[in-house]
Write a protein that binds this DNA or RNA. Structure first.
Length: 883
RNA sequence: AGGACUAUAGCUCAGUUGGUUAGAGCGCUACGUUGACAUCGUAGAGGUCUCCAGUUCGAAUCUGGAUAGUCCUACCA
């Protein structure tokens, strides 16, 4: 068979992906005889395009899912997309804008239709990109938050919560995005520090004395038209006389009371605070305490409304500020302007300055839902990896605020609430009402708002499996097993899924939540569009292949960490792919002609027993590491096994010991080597599925591995399915030390080219017999012509020495002028070792240590003491031999 | 302001219940290519595990404190 000299990722990735999909390996249906493993793909927005964050989440989850699939689980990894209310609406509006149209001109229905069309055209781009990475999702189940089924679930949960009194409508301050003209939730707001001004403004006070003033400091002077009071601290001596008096809002003839409230910090600003309940969150509360009126001064587009004086009416908030400041200057009521740096809220979506604005919105009462969610994490039903996130989770839930779920958008699930135009009653239900349930009137009007996108995504563990129907899917797959996601949506998504699952099903939605790393550039800055410092995964896949990208990411990124990623990092994964490919190519050339037979492992030569044992150790370790979500470590285990055990030693040994005459011994060795290699491919499959599959089909069939139709559904090696040879492995390790010792000695002498070099070795009798049994191989691997056993150093003469545990290697010094240099080296070595020996001696003489240390630690220390002691002895002997 | 996390080799990071001569990859040095792979091999150099105190027979690992950095939450009228 022809074996290509280089691996072609692009060609093979397509080939194998098509094969896997055609054979339907990733689909799952409920099967009571098989244990399920369910994972949820965090549904990307339909507006998303693949970035490294997705890449990492998908790779991590795919590795775990593929590993579980190969371990015999019935795996369902559920994919899908989120309709992304605001983001999609913005996209569509933008394209409308280019045609010079607005959504208002188009009308709600047509606009909604346009959004649907946009989704149909662009919504699956991200999904196709995920597939490029090899995501082994159950693609037949691909869900979408606006699909019919999922929309029913949204309606069901809304109605249930409403009926349970957990959904209510209230007039509150919301974060108002004037650009999008909608409320956004607290979690969609971010703060940014900007340069601003603090305006000190004088209000006239009505009282006995003429011209008394009270000076307040504010960053938003225009909000004064919504002022309902001026507050001072009740114990602030400066202002005692003012409490109870009235002050006049400049530019108006409105008078407001001066009140006392402990919220005011006397040391801040002037110690006098204007209270604007309708436009500031804290003032809202102060206002509530003092029963102050809430005066809304803003139109939805943040222009000042009719409650304001003509001076500013109709002007934009920033324009109005300028106008007002000029007017205040003229009336000498502007005391001063101080420039400050302060953080102000911005809308995550609209990127514009948020205005707190009074409006009627729908809310979910969160406290009753939070309790069980706290409980679940406290009892360990729900675990976080790393678990430090638990604290954050608790803190948020314990201080939870009600969730504003209405959005003034057109794209999304319209709120299933109908207001009776007759009696004002509120109607809801699973069916659209035709008449008012209170008065029977047919004049009903549906609430124009839509629900927050998260109000559908929080049902992700439930709705795609058919909830609220009691489906077989739901019974089999729910609760799911695992979620991998970014810690940034622990509140927005993770906690809410937990709450709604506990509310509806009395069960946590998943047992384990893994938070993946945040990906940064070389300078530690987060990847962001505005900085343009991101790395496009698709571009990297193009140049290195999906496997290289996957492997690089997973071995670089710990759970819950922060990883600095640069383009060059992907060369690491690429080299690994190349290395494996070439190892396979070598096996093909050297052993390819062999027919594989069952291996009699017990009868294998020592080094091959070691190699088999290495597979056993790695398989055991990887299973354990993956079970505890240590993907990074398991990738390293795989890497070490493949590169340093199999290639550096296994392949080298094979080169020396196969004779190529078709003997039984050769056949056994070839079969053993391929047994290990196939084992490694199996271990590698979850990490680098494309390459593994390609090589797996190229290698000869091994009778001791069960051959399935594809590697992706083959058994993952375990401790039980791989033979172990701990003693043989230990023995071979000792021989490896000698081989390295010889190489080191040669390197010191710079005699790489002297193939006829002969060395002396002195060692214990027992080890000598082992060494003799493997002497030809040891000589070949260490690259010397001869290795002679000597009983003493005297036999060897003036020598360079290399001392290890239980053996000393000597090579005669050709050049006697090197003796001083060698003496210095040995002295240094002796110093290093005697330090260790002295430490051990002190330890062993310490009775407290002897008494308290566990038995195995003690035994180890004693053995090491003896070992190092004898090495020291040998070194001293060498030093002495130089006179 | 409150909270969380991080501090280990020049760089990027491992180090799972306290017991190793503290590791890996990249980079660096020396040597090595007549077919697995130079996308390579062999051998090296390089670390008072940020600092101070404590617990312990024993601390990179646990506790307290300091310093520096990152992030989150709330917020400054």
């Amino acid at each position: 068979m022809d074996f290509p000299s280089a691996y072609n990722p692009e060609k093979n990735e397509k080939k194998w992906w098509d094969f896997w999909i055609a054979e339907d390996f990733f689909s799952s249906t409920p099967n009571p005889d098989k244990k399920s493993f369910t994972a949820l793909l965090p549904p990307p927005n339909v507006t998303d395009r693949l970035h490294m964050g997705h890449g990492l989440v998908v790779t991590t989850q795919d590795i775990l899912t593929r590993w579980k699939r190969m371990s015999g689980f019935n795996c369902c990894w559920l994919p899908g997309t989120d309709h992304a209310g605001i983001a999609t609406q913005m996209m569509v509006e933008k394209s409308l804008q280019q045609e010079g149209k607005t959504r208002q001109e188009l009308g709600r229905e047509a606009f909604f239709q346009l959004c649907c069309e946009w989704k149909d055209k662009n919504g699956d781009i991200i999904i196709e990109q995920l597939k490029k990475l090899g995501a082994s999702c159950d693609w037949k189940r691909q869900a979408y938050t606006m699909s019919e089924g999922l929309s029913t679930a949204v309606r069901r949960i809304f109605v249930s919560l409403y009926e349970d009194g957990l959904v209510y409508r209230g007039e509150r301050l919301v974060n108002w995005d004037p650009a999008l003209q909608t409320a956004v939730s607290d979690d969609e707001v971010y703060n940014e520090e900007i340069n601003g001004n603090m305006y000190h403004i004088a209000y006239r006070v009505r009282g006995a004395e003429a011209d008394t003033q009270v000076v307040v400091a504010t960053t938003r002077p225009e909000t004064m038209f919504g002022d309902a009071a001026i507050a001072v601290h009740p114990e602030d001596e400066r202002y005692q006389t003012l409490i109870g008096k009235e002050a006049q809002i400049p530019c108006t003839d409105r008078w407001i009371p001066i009140i006392a409230d402990t919220y005011v910090k006397p040391e801040f600003g002037t110690g006098c605070l204007k209270i604007t309940p309708a436009h500031d969150f804290n003032d809202f509360e102060v206002g509530q305490r003092h029963h102050l009126p809430r005066i809304n001064i803003l139109n939805p587009d943040a222009t000042l409304n009719e409650t304001c004086p003509e001076l500013v009416r109709g002007q934009d908030r920033f324009k109005a500020r300028e106008t007002l400041v000029r007017a205040l200057k003229d009336s000498h009521q502007l005391i001063k302007i101080v420039s400050i740096r302060h953080s102000v809220p911005f809308s995550d979506r609209g990127k514009c300055l948020i205005e707190p604005r009074l409006s009627l919105q729908w809310y979910v009462k969160m406290q009753p839902l939070a309790g069980p969610a706290i409980e679940a994490a406290a009892t360990g039903d729900l675990k976080f990896h790393p678990d430090t996130w638990q604290k954050t989770y608790f803190h948020w839930l314990e201080n939870i605020q009600d969730w504003c779920i209405s959005r003034q958008l057109w794209w999304g699930h319209q709120i299933p609430i109908w207001y009776c135009q007759g009696c004002q009653a509120i109607n809801t239900g699973m069916e659209d009402p035709t008449s008012c349930s209170t008065c029977g009137s047919t004049d009903l009007q549906q609430d124009p708002d839509v629900l927050d996108t998260w109000f559908s995504s929080w049902l992700w563990p439930l709705s795609p499996f058919g909830w609220p129907e009691k489906t077989k899917d739901l019974a089999y797959y729910f609760p799911t097993d695992m979620l991998v996601t970014g810690a940034d949506i622990i509140f927005l998504w993770v906690a809410r899924m937990t709450m709604v699952s506990l509310y509806t099903m009395q069960k946590v939605p998943f047992k384990d939540v893994c938070f993946n790393s945040i990906i940064c550039d070389k300078d530690g800055r987060k990847f962001s569009k505005t900085l343009g410092n991101g790395i496009d995964p698709l571009e990297v896949i193009k140049s290195y292949g999906a496997d290289a990208v996957r492997f690089t990411m997973i071995q670089l990124a710990p759970l819950g960490g922060r990883v600095k990623l640069s383009m060059e990092d992907f060369e690491h994964g690429n080299r690994f792919i190349n290395k494996i490919w070439n190892a396979a190519r070598f096996l093909h050339g050297k052993l390819g002609a062999q027919t594989l037979v069952p291996v009699d492992f017990e009868a294998l030569p020592l080094p091959y027993q070691w190699l088999v044992h290495e597979l056993h150790v790695a398989a055991t370790r990887m299973d354990q590491q993956l079970s505890s979500y240590q993907m990074q470590e398991s990738a390293l285990t795989l890497y070490q096994l493949m590169w340093h055990a199999f290639c550096d030693w296994g392949v080298e040994i094979t080169k020396e010991s196969i004779e190529g005459k078709g003997t039984v011994e050769d056949q056994q060795i070839a079969s053993a080597v391929y047994f290990v290699f196939e084992g490694i491919l199996r271990l590698a499959s979850p990490f680098i599925p494309f390459l593994a599959e390609e090589l797996w089909t190229l290698i000869p069939v091994h009778p001791q591995w069960k051959r399935e139709k594809s590697l992706v559904i083959s058994a993952f090696p375990t401790a039980a399915s791989t033979p172990a040879f701990p003693e043989a492995a230990h023995t071979w390790n000792r021989l490896q030390e000698v081989i390295s010792g010889v190489r080191s000695l040669k390197s010191q002498m710079q005699v790489e080219k002297k193939k006829d070099l002969a060395l002396f070795i002195r060692c214990e009798a027992e080890f000598r017999s082992v060494l003799e049994s493997q002497l030809p191989l040891v000589k070949k691997l260490s690259g010397v012509a001869d290795l002679q056993f000597v009983a003493s150093l005297q036999e060897a003469g003036a020598c360079l020495a290399n001392v290890g545990p239980g053996w000393s290697l000597y090579v005669p010094l050709a050049d006697l002028t090197q003796i001083p240099k060698e003496k210095t080296r040995i002295a240094g070595e002796m110093q290093r070792i005697s330090k260790i020996v002295m430490g051990l001696e002190k330890k062993l003489q310490n009775e407290a240590f002897v008494q308290n240390a566990p038995a195995d630690v003690l035994v180890q220390a004693k053995a090491q003491f003896a070992n190092m002691g004898s090495q020291l002895e040998s070194l001293r002997e060498s030093l002495d031999s130089f006179g």
